[in-house]
């Protein structure tokens, strides 16, 4: 008897409550709480949209939003005139150069679109530490290259410095996407010395490296070797290799060089010597760049 009284009563109460709970209609506000700020686009912004974003899906960030900077360094934003010059330089020598390199492919821009860093981030000053050690550039997470010291860029003398640095950092990004075979690391595995590279004697060639910086880590060795393959002439390679007295060291450099050539070809369809010719040819023609025109 107790049960028959209790059940209907309780059930009725619960049903009524449930009904009341569900009777309030929660209508979503159709207006987003995220308000888009009205961004004022300059002529340079519009040029970047036409020449970086649309063809290559690359964001060229010259306003230095502080969230992207390294908080352990004191830095300043880049000047706009030099930012424009660097944007034009990188487009002409690297991005358009990569499209030329891949001109036989169905989509010539695909290499740059796929592997060129999604974000180029310009910083006016260098990143300096308390020992006055300077960082020239850095690659972040395979998608971003930070170009530092834009204030000091001189287009008469500094073009190859910027593009060479970009190739170096680009190699890091390629390596980060599809790693160079581990055998590369083993060729001079006992020769990597970390940060001590900065105080090492200049006997890197005799130890199987193209620079002291290449001695720091295998990753830097890969980047230095790639940058030398693209940025240096056949004559430079020949004279450099011929200057090495230690035959074993020379063989190690040649082996690393060949591994990079093979890796670029097999993983990215990059003919490195064709790239070198295009890159160096364009670097010799930077005088053709219209540095001031933002209407094209």
């Amino acid at each position: 008897m107790k049960k028959t009284f209790f059940k209907p009563y309780l059930l009725a109460a619960l049903c009524a409550s449930t009904l009341l709970v569900s009777c309030f209609k929660e209508e979503l506000n159709p207006t987003s709480v995220i308000v888009d700020t009205e961004e004022v686009k300059s002529q340079f912004d519009l040029w970047l949209e036409r020449h970086y974003v649309e063809p290559y899906n690359v964001n060229f960030e010259y306003r230095m939003p502080d969230r992207e900077t390294h908080f352990n360094y004191w830095v300043t934003p880049p000047p706009i005139d030099k930012s424009i010059e660097i944007a034009k330089l990188i487009k002409f020598v690297l991005l358009d150069g990569m499209s030329e390199l891949m001109s036989d492919e169905e989509n010539p821009t695909l290499l740059a679109k796929t592997y060129f860093p999604r974000l180029l981030f310009l910083v006016g000053s260098y990143e300096m530490d308390s020992n006055n050690t300077v960082v020239l550039a850095s690659a972040e997470n395979g998608i971003q290259i930070n170009l530092l010291g834009v204030n000091y860029f001189d287009r008469e003398t500094g073009c190859s410095g910027i593009t060479g640095t970009m190739i170096h950092e680009f190699a890091h990004i390629l390596d980060g996407n599809i790693a160079v075979p581990i055998e590369f690391d083993l060729i001079t595995k006992d020769g990597y010395i970390g940060d001590s590279y900065s105080s090492a004697p200049n006997d890197y060639l005799e130890n199987g490296f193209l620079s002291n910086y290449a001695r720091s880590t295998p990753a830097e060795d890969i980047a230095v070797t790639t940058a030398a393959l693209v940025g240096e002439t056949p004559e430079w390679w020949e004279s450099t290799l011929n200057s090495i007295k230690n035959a074993e060291a020379r063989a190690k450099i040649e082996k690393k060089r060949d591994m990079i050539i093979s890796w670029l070809k097999s993983e990215f369809s990059i003919d490195v010597y064709k790239w070198r010719d295009i890159y160096q040819g364009r670097l010799n023609r930077v005088g053709e760049i219209d540095w001031y025109n933002l209407d094209d």
Partner: peptide
């Protein structure tokens, strides 16, 4: 101040002369 200005960023710019 978005882009470098030698007046406005004079004190903020690290360099060899004044340090990091």
């Amino acid at each position: 101040f978005v882009n470098f200005n030698s007046f406005l960023h004079y004190f903020a710019m690290p360099n060899y002369e004044h340090g990091y």
